[in-house]
Design a protein around this nucleic acid. Structure first.
Lengths: 270, 270
DNA sequence: CAGTGGTCTAGACCACGGG
DNA sequence: CCGTGGTCTAGACCACTGG
C-alpha cells in the first residue's frame, strides 16, 4: 500500500512548508486533525512522518517548526571549522564550553596525537548550537605544547580554529577523519536534545598543522543527523571528487528515473 | 519525560533480543500487548522504537525479526567490494542485474571517468541483497575500453570486482568517494524495500586501477541505512586512522561518561 | 484462510513550556 | 493558566503474506 490518509497529509504539508523559512511555526496536531477531518492519531502520524524526513522539528509544550539540515563537508581538501560551516549556511553558530581542563592524556589519545602517555593536554568539552538549537557535542584534546592557556581565549572566540590560528600560529588541516551514523548514546541525549536512539553522527578527526604536519588536536564529536547533512569525501590530491556538490548529485541522480529496470533473461529472481 | 510504558517495553525487548541471531522472529504486536498488559498502540510504539533503532525489521503480513547492520568501510586504504564486505560479516551476498547495456556516456559521467562525451560504456544497474533482504541499489558505469562484454561474465560471478580482476586484468582501488545520508527517493522505494523518506546512504565512487591509475568505473549507489553501518575515512597514506575500528571507538567513547559536564563561570547560557 | 503489521477513531490524561 | 506535543486505551477495519 503506497497511499494512506496520513501519508497524503504529510505529502501536502511537505509541499506547503517547502518554501517557508527554517524555524517557521506550523500547525499543531489538533489543528491538522480538524483541517483534514481526521482523528488526532492520523494527524500525529503525518507530523511524525515529516519529523522522520527531517523536515520539521517538534518540541513538546512549544510546537512544530520547519527545519533544514546544514551541509557539513568533511574532506581532505576542506579545513575543519564548525563555525565557518554553519556561517556559510547563513545560520548563527554558537559554542558553549561544558568543561575545559588540563589532564594527562590516556594511552589511546596520546598515541593518536603522537605524544607520550601521561603528557599534559587540554580536554575541552563543548556543546554547539545552530541558531540556538543544540546540534553537536564533542570532546577536543589539545596537547599543552600547542597552546598553554586555552580557556581564556576561548571565552572571546567561539572558534577553536581561530584561537589556534591567531594565538598558536598554526593552521588546522585534517590528517584523517572517520564518521559513522549511530544512535544517540544515553549519556548524550540531554546535551543534544534528542531521545536515546535518535540518529546522530559520530566523527573522529585528527588535525595537523597545514605547514609542518605537526599533530595538533584530536576531536570526537556527535552531531544531530536531523541538523547536519554530513558529506564525507575521500580522495588523494591528484584525484579530487567532481565538483558541483548537490548540483552534480541532482543532475546525476536524474539518470536514475527515466527508464524501467529490465530483467535480463539469465538473471536470478529478485 | 524520560520514561514511559512503551519505552520500558522497548528497553526490555532490546535486552531480550540482544543475544539472538539476526533474522530471528520475535513476538508480534498482539502478543506483546498481551504479555505486558498494554493496548496494542503501546506495544506497537515499542516495536517501532526498536525499528527506529535499527534493531528489528518489520514486514507486513510476515512478522518482526531481529536485525543488525553490516559494517561497510569506505577508505582510501580499503579496496571496494560489496561481496567481500558482506561475506566478511558472515552474511550471504547476492546481486541481481536489473539492466546491463552499452550506452554513450553523457557529459558528466564521461568527464568523471576521463573519457570523451559520447564514448561507449556499460551502464549496469544492480540490486544487492544481504541474506536475501534488499540492501542496496546502484548504477555502475564502465567504459567499454576496460572490458568489452560485461553481461556474460557477470552471470557467473556476482562480483564486479572479481570480473574486472580476472577478465580485464585490473585491480580496483578507490580514487575518491563521496557519501551522504539522504531519504529514499520515490523511484527507489520499491527496489530497496523501503518507504519513501526512510534513511538511505547515497554513495558516489570513482575507481581506478591500483597499478596504473587508469580510471575504470564510476558508481552511484543507494544503501539502506538500517542494513549498512557505513564508516567513512579520509586520510593520506602517511597518516592512516588509528586502527581498531569499533573497538577503539568503544574504548574512546567510554571517556565521555564518567564525569558530569561542568559549567564554566564565564560561559554563556546553554 | 489465518495471522501479521498498517491505519484510524474518539476519546482520555499527562508533561512540558511560555505567558 | 493554556496550548503544545507525548502517551495510552479499546476498539475497528484493512492490506499483505504465507500456507
Amino acid at each position: 500500500m503506497a497511499s494512506s490518509r496520513y501519508r497524503d497529509i504529510a505529502e501536502q504539508l511537505a509541499a506547503e512548508i517547502a518554501g517557508l523559512a527554517p524555524g517557521t511555526r506550523i500547525e499543531g496536531e489538533h489543528e491538522i486533525a480538524e483541517r483534514f477531518g481526521v482523528g488526532r492519531a492520523a494527524a500525529r502520524a503525518a507530523l511524525q512522518e515529516l519529523e522522520r524526513r527531517m523536515l520539521v522539528r517538534r518540541v513538546q509544550g512549544v510546537g512544530t517548526f520547519t527545519s533544514r539540515r546544514i551541509d557539513y563537508l568533511i574532506s581532505p581538501h576542506q579545513p575543519p571549522s564548525w563555525s565557518r560551516t554553519v556561517n556559510a549556511a547563513n545560520s548563527h553558530s554558537r559554542a558553549v564550553i561544558r568543561s575545559c581542563e588540563v589532564v594527562n592524556l590516556v594511552d589511546e589519545i596520546a598515541a593518536v596525537l603522537g605524544r607520550v602517555p601521561g603528557d599534559p593536554g587540554h580536554r575541552l568539552r563543548r556543546r554547539s548550537f545552530i541558531d540556538d538549537l543544540p546540534a553537536a557535542w564533542g570532546i577536543e584534546w589539545i596537547p599543552t605544547d600547542v597552546i598553554g592557556d586555552l580557556a581564556t581565549p576561548l571565552r572571546l572566540f567561539d572558534s577553536l580554529d581561530r584561537v589556534l590560528r591567531e594565538l598558536a600560529g598554526v593552521t588546522l588541516r585534517r590528517a584523517w577523519a572517520r564518521a559513522s551514523l549511530e544512535t544517540t548514546p544515553f549519556e548524550l541525549a540531554d546535551e543534544l536534545g534528542t531521545s536515546p536512539g535518535d540518529p546522530v553522527w559520530y566523527v573522529e578527526s585528527l588535525n595537523e598543522d597545514a605547514e609542518t604536519g605537526r599533530l595538533l588536536c584530536f576531536t570526537q564529536r556527535w552531531l544531530r543527523a536531523d541538523a547536519i547533512r554530513l558529506i564525507m569525501e575521500t580522495g588523494w590530491a591528484g584525484t579530487a571528487p567532481a565538483r558541483g556538490g548537490a548540483g552534480a548529485h541532482a543532475r546525476i541522480s536524474a539518470a536514475v528515473g527515466p527508464d524501467q529496470p529490465v530483467r535480463l533473461p539469465a538473471g536470478p529472481r529478485p
